[in-house]
Amino acid sequence: MTNLPKPKYTWRQTWENHPKHFSGYDGSRLIAAIHWYHMGWWNWHMCWNRSKGSSKWKRPNGQADSARAAALEAEACYDAVLRCEWPGMVPEDLQYMLDQEEWMRNRP
């Protein structure tokens, strides 16, 4: 058993036939994904980063030794993005993402 804290967001298996691939959600918002890499580690990537300026950010992904550690790293990245503190972000990036999300929710 790990001594790491429990993830604060909801994580569930992404696909029924892929038991080592999980998606993380903040409510209905898809925020991140983690999956087992056959070389012996877990990859993570934060998904909620569709912004015009995101190509200037530090890459929102990484590797970890366990699924829980990967989930926590992805959550930390997402939380930093929400605070507009992820390296390379500017306030306009966050506002663009929020505006795009609202537009997607309200489109016909």
Rank of each mutant, 00 (worst) to 15 (best):
M1H: 15
T2F: 12
N3C: 04
L4I: 13
P5Q: 03
K6W: 10
K6A: 15
K6T: 09
P7R: 04
P7S: 13
K8S: 06
K8I: 06
K8A: 07
Y9K: 01
W11Q: 02
W11N: 08
R12L: 11
R12I: 03
Q13W: 07
Q13A: 09
T14Y: 01
T14V: 15
W15R: 11
W15K: 12
E16Y: 08
E16T: 14
N17L: 10
N17E: 07
N17H: 09
H18C: 06
K20R: 05
K20D: 01
H21G: 09
F22N: 00
S23V: 14
S23I: 10
S23D: 14
G24Y: 09
G24N: 10
Y25R: 14
G27Q: 12
S28F: 13
S28C: 13
A32W: 01
A32M: 15
A32Y: 04
A32E: 03
A33Y: 02
A33C: 13
H35R: 09
H35Q: 11
W36C: 07
W36G: 01
W36R: 06
Y37F: 15
H38P: 01
H38L: 04
H38R: 04
G40P: 00
W41M: 00
W42C: 00
W42V: 01
N43D: 14
W44I: 00
W44Q: 00
H45N: 07
M46I: 13
C47Q: 09
C47I: 02
W48T: 06
W48I: 03
N49F: 14
R50I: 03
R50S: 14
S51A: 13
G53M: 07
S54D: 04
S54W: 07
S54T: 08
S55P: 04
S55D: 13
S55A: 14
W57I: 00
W57T: 02
R59C: 01
R59M: 02
R59S: 08
R59P: 01
P60L: 01
P60W: 02
N61D: 13
N61F: 10
G62K: 11
G62L: 09
G62E: 03
Q63N: 10
Q63E: 10
A64K: 04
A64P: 14
S66P: 01
S66N: 06
A67D: 05
A67Q: 09
R68C: 14
R68H: 10
R68V: 08
A69N: 12
A70W: 04
A70N: 05
L72N: 03
E73C: 15
A74S: 09
A76R: 08
A76F: 08
A76N: 15
A76P: 09
A76I: 06
C77Q: 06
C77I: 00
Y78P: 12
A80S: 11
A80K: 13
L82P: 02
L82D: 08
R83F: 06
C84G: 07
W86R: 04
G88P: 05
G88K: 15
G88Y: 11
G88F: 08
G88L: 12
V90P: 03
V90E: 08
P91R: 08
P91E: 13
P91K: 13
D93N: 03
D93V: 05
D93F: 06
Q95H: 08
Y96Q: 12
Y96P: 00
M97A: 09
M97V: 09
L98H: 12
E101M: 11
W103K: 15
R105E: 04
N106P: 11
P108C: 15
P108E: 14
